[in-house]
């Protein structure tokens, strides 16, 4: 492990200022991802700026509805928050489907969104990886890629974003509040992560040194009827091989509104706009849900080992929406 310095900033402004001056510095939140990667030599910061004591650990109910979630709110606290459980069950479900109890007690909202891919080649400094070392090649593209992307990958990187939380937030149209060296800014969750394209090493649209301070959830009454479905290789404590976050608002049996996002298929949480379009305004049926998933997945380009993700994502789309539709009380 590279020797590093440690700094505990007094406030947000200082944190951002310190990072702006230190090209090799990183924010430390729960450390459940960063510290692992430091031990593996994948990330080698020379300064850790600890954000855990910043006053960013509150969940506030906003006046007009909606929630503001501080960046250092722990995943377990967020999942247990009464307003989250009541108004955004998809979020509570996504959080509880992730990692383990011990990890969730440490993992923060901000850190979760910025956690790095679980691509096994990224995590092994002995192997080629454009994300870790631009220009070195992508070992996964023609290697063991069962767990990697089927949508929107590039020849330079086929990694997926591993977060469950981010998928739920994508479906909820969350907004990320960040503090950049140039000042504070709002970034829609759907615009936070980038496609790998020519620069897989650039994972977000944030300026260098940006600090996530909060995540805002809009008032979305329909989200009371929402679900997160996660499929993994064992019953608990595993990353998704497929996941779907869904919010369904029916008027009779007609889809008034729907929000759908996929995990484990792309370099970013995948908001399924095309599927939503297919669904909106039509009478709901499982067949319609399947057609909607097909529309979304039409551009899927499976790799050698992950063709199963397409029918899997389709299957869980149908299941999640059908279960939500069945839960919808008659008007």
């Amino acid at each position: 492990m590279r020797p590093f310095r440690y700094h505990r900033p007094a406030d947000v402004a200082e944190a951002v200022a310190v990072l702006a001056d230190e090209p090799q510095a990183a924010y430390l939140a729960g450390g459940t991802n960063l510290v692992d990667l430091m031990k593996l030599g994948v990330q080698r910061p020379d300064l850790l700026v600890d954000v855990n004591r910043l006053p960013l650990d509150a969940v506030e109910e906003l006046p007009g509805g909606g929630l503001r979630i501080g960046a250092t709110v722990r995943n377990s606290d967020l999942a247990a928050h009464p307003a989250v459980r009541r108004d955004y069950p998809v979020l509570a479900r996504a959080l509880l489907a992730a990692a383990s109890g011990q990890l969730r007690n440490l993992a923060t909202t901000g850190g979760n969104l910025l956690q790095r891919t679980r691509c096994v080649y990224f995590q092994d400094t002995g192997k080629a990886c454009n994300k870790r070392e631009p220009g070195s090649g992508c070992a996964a593209r023609h290697g063991q890629n069962r767990d990697l992307a089927v949508l929107d990958w590039s020849d330079l990187c086929v990694a997926t974003h591993p977060s469950d939380l981010a998928v739920a937030l994508a479906a909820l149209d969350a907004v990320v509040e960040v503090h950049e060296p140039a000042g504070p800014r709002d970034v829609p969750l759907a615009a936070l992560h980038r496609s790998p394209g020519e620069h897989p090493e650039r994972e977000t649209t944030l300026a260098r040194g940006a600090l996530i301070t909060a995540v805002r959830l809009p008032h979305l009454p329909a989200a009371r009827r929402s679900a997160y479905l996660k499929v993994r290789d064992r019953a608990s404590f595993a990353f998704a091989v497929g996941s779907v976050a869904a919010v369904l608002d029916l008027d009779g049996d007609v889809v008034r509104d729907v929000r759908l996002a996929y995990g484990a298929v792309a370099h970013r949480p995948w908001r399924a706009y095309r599927a939503e379009e297919e669904l909106r305004g039509r009478a709901f049926s499982p067949q319609l849900a399947a057609r909607a998933a097909d529309a979304e997945l039409a551009e899927a380009r499976p790799l050698r080992h992950n063709g199963f993700k397409v029918p899997l994502t389709r299957a869980i789309t149908v299941r999640a929406l059908t279960e939500l539709a069945e839960r919808t009380p008659a008007p």
Binding site: R118, V120, Y121, Q123, D124, G126, K127, A139, G143, Q144, R146, D233, R234, A235, S236, F237, A238, F239
Partner: peptide, 28 residues
């Protein structure tokens, strides 16, 4: 659950930790 996934180009198992080499957990 368990499987050492070999990458023949590198000659070793790519899933060499307990997050990627899955062992049956209590919930299973």
């Amino acid at each position: 659950h368990e499987e050492g996934v070999l990458d023949e180009r590198y000659g070793d198992w790519v899933n060499h930790d307990l997050a990627t080499y899955h062992i049956t957990g209590c919930a299973d």
